[in-house]
């Protein structure tokens, strides 16, 4: 597979969130504001990239019987690294993300890419695949958070955008079901553009 396609595919045509419908749980939970959504997206990108890299390096030595356990240990380690760093250097954001940083371990995208890609591909390809899938996830999170923060709080990244024009905040946007509806709309638009994804 060509490297460039390897990179662009998960960003749009085969996006993990809106095509494979993975990682929905955190997409609902951390998209109330843009800042935590962005940090969450980048954290997941870090974890998918390095878990893919490490597992790809280990792929020839891992006993297949404990393969999943080894993957979990690697992923969990990376998640703890992210969590510790956020607590030390981005304390406010880490408080907003609360348990969802720890729950990256259970994000299906991470383990899905390790199983489906890293175990059968070379380290560099796997690393790129991890970054691309993480960014594909981050992109959707930021997109959802953009609409939710704009219409729910009238701000973007905490800066007053439309509230000053007398916009009345719609607190429905702050509830998790609204994130699901927005993701549904994104999927709708995405499938309208990519006709091959439409089920007959």
């Amino acid at each position: 597979m060509k490297l460039s396609k390897n990179f662009t595919n998960p960003l749009a045509a085969n996006n993990p969130v809106i095509v494979q419908i993975l990682g929905i749980c955190s997409a609902l939970a951390v998209t109330v504001k843009l800042e935590p959504a962005l940090v969450m997206g980048l954290s997941v990108t870090f974890v998918t990239a390095f878990s893919n890299l490490v597992m790809s390096l280990l792929r020839n030595g891992v006993p297949s019987r404990i393969r999943i356990i080894v993957q979990l240990v690697v992923i969990a380690t990376l998640v703890i690294v992210v969590d510790q760093f956020l607590r030390a250097f981005m304390y406010d954001v880490s408080k907003q993300l609360s348990v969802y940083v720890g729950l990256i371990i259970t994000n299906c995208i991470v383990m899905g890419r390790v199983e489906a890609f890293a175990l059968a591909n070379k380290p560099w390809d796997s690393f790129v695949d991890g970054i691309a899938n993480g960014l594909g996830y981050a992109f959707i999170l930021v997109l959802v958070a953009f609409f939710r923060e704009l219409f729910g709080s009238g701000t973007l990244f905490g800066f007053d955008v439309i509230a000053r024009f007398g916009y009345e905040n719609n607190s429905l946007m702050l509830f998790p079901p609204m994130a699901l509806i927005i993701i549904g709309c994104i999927i709708w638009v995405h499938r309208t553009i990519n006709k091959d994804l439409q089920e007959k």
Binding site: P63, V70, V73, T77, I80, Q84, R87, A88, F89, Y91
Partner: peptide, 30 residues
């Protein structure tokens, strides 16, 4: 399998212990 897991756990444990100790002061200050 046993040797593999033992080595893995020791490496990961050392790494995380080191990380937690070195960031502890900064986190407490936060």
């Amino acid at each position: 399998i046993i040797i593999y897991t033992v080595v893995m756990v020791v490496i990961v444990g050392t790494l995380l212990a080191f990380l937690a100790t070195s960031l502890k002061d900064k986190q407490a200050a936060n």
